[in-house]
Design a protein around this nucleic acid. Structure first.
Lengths: 214, 214
DNA sequence: TAGATTGTTAATCGATTAACAATC
DNA sequence: TAGATTGTTAATCGATTAACAATC
């Protein structure tokens, strides 16, 4: 079981990308690949690939390269995809429903166990076989099911209050789609802020810059 | 008009966050703020804030700090939010519809002008007042409307072909939600890969790591 | 064995932080 | 003027890249 500490966030953010590319190569039927070939495939340096992988152990073999399936599966284990983490989602509006229907939680290391909303029209509806519960039931649900992670698809005005409640209820991680930055000064609480709007504005800047010369 | 070159991507990615925080402070009715106060608010160093802002010019005043509204609006201009870029969206499934309904394109520097899907059941439906067109009409639509950006909410299997078509049609930027990495070796084409799955797997890793000691 | 390619150390590069003179 | 705070240069830190000995 890999228990590697102090891995930089830059490396961690590249892991899912390695996982994805190796998965493709696997599907294509390839057995082995060198860091040089993979670097060409992925558009980064062979050095970086070897450095990254060596944070977690020697997966390669001198003179041979890396076994694609083995490396793919190992990265899956490093990411924790084999030990599903219990998750709930707060907010079943447009975005929440799209996340529920679109995301393959099972293959990303999570199992979705609860959906909450405050809208009376949504409560008791079923989405992907899970019944939408009233947000007032979050606390009692958490006491029973003890989810580790909450996906937040709620307006920014509600995020601070809800995230504090959830931390009290034992939630240890947030996948946060709201436009509010959760500041997790609480020990052991992890936040992944998605901030789609920020991403879109970044594109706006870069489009403009790319066309300055024209 | 700001025409600043060679700004690092790290700085650019912080701009929307500054914009967001300054917007909040503005709404609260504040007039001015020092880099020191803003750094506390945002959880980064005052040095970094001053460095970042100085990439684009001297917005502050010694002994006083920054005028919140002025700085907010300037960053908006830097991001290009005042000159809306024409966009189309390809894919009106769960995710596509959520993006259309949920994203405030108008306040993020874009105007959504077209929606495309290949599903006969969706074609001719209206979403947010825009009629869904068949993907076969992309080319003729682009000839007339000349959109600059395409939002891709399609499966990864379709992404390479569609993105090549769009580049031929004059599209210069992609907001890509598919699990395929568009490689924009084409001069002047900008890609913002969203990769929600990667984000989720990153959370899986970090949750696991944060709880190793337990 | 010879060739290939890793794992790992050292060098480089870039980004962040600290310091302080300039100035409002 | 004195105090505050910026703009900017210099120092530090960390991440990426290059190089090469180890080894399959």
């Amino acid at each position: 079981m890999p228990t590697h500490h102090n891995i930089s966030i830059a490396v961690i953010r590249r892991l899912p990308r390695y996982y994805r590319f190796l998965g493709e190569l696997m599907n294509v039927g390839l057995q082995r690949i060198s860091s040089a070939s993979l670097s060409e495939e992925m558009g980064l340096t062979a050095s970086q690939i070897r450095q990254d992988l060596n944070c977690f152990g020697g997966f390669g073999q001198q003179g041979y390269g890396y076994n694609i399936k083995e490396l793919h599966d190992q990265i899956g284990v490093i990411l924790g995809l084999d030990q599903p983490t219990k998750a709930i989602i707060i907010g079943a509006g447009n975005l929440g429903r799209a996340v529920i229907n679109h995301m393959d939680f099972g293959n990303r290391g999570f199992v979705l166990e609860g959906i909450f909303d405050q809208d009376k029209k949504l409560i008791n509806q079923e989405i992907k076989g899970i019944k939408v519960l009233d947000t007032s039931e979050i606390q009692s649900f958490c006491n029973v099911h003890k989810p580790t992670v909450a996906v937040l698809c709620i307006p920014k005005t509600a995020t601070e209050k809800i995230s504090n409640l959830l931390i009290e209820c034992g939630v240890r991680g947030f996948w946060n789609f709201s436009h509010y930055d959760i500041n997790s000064d609480v020990e052991g609480v992890v936040v992944e802020n998605v901030h789609m709007s920020d991403s879109l504005m970044t594109l706006s800047y870069r489009i403009k810059e790319a066309n300055l010369d024209k």
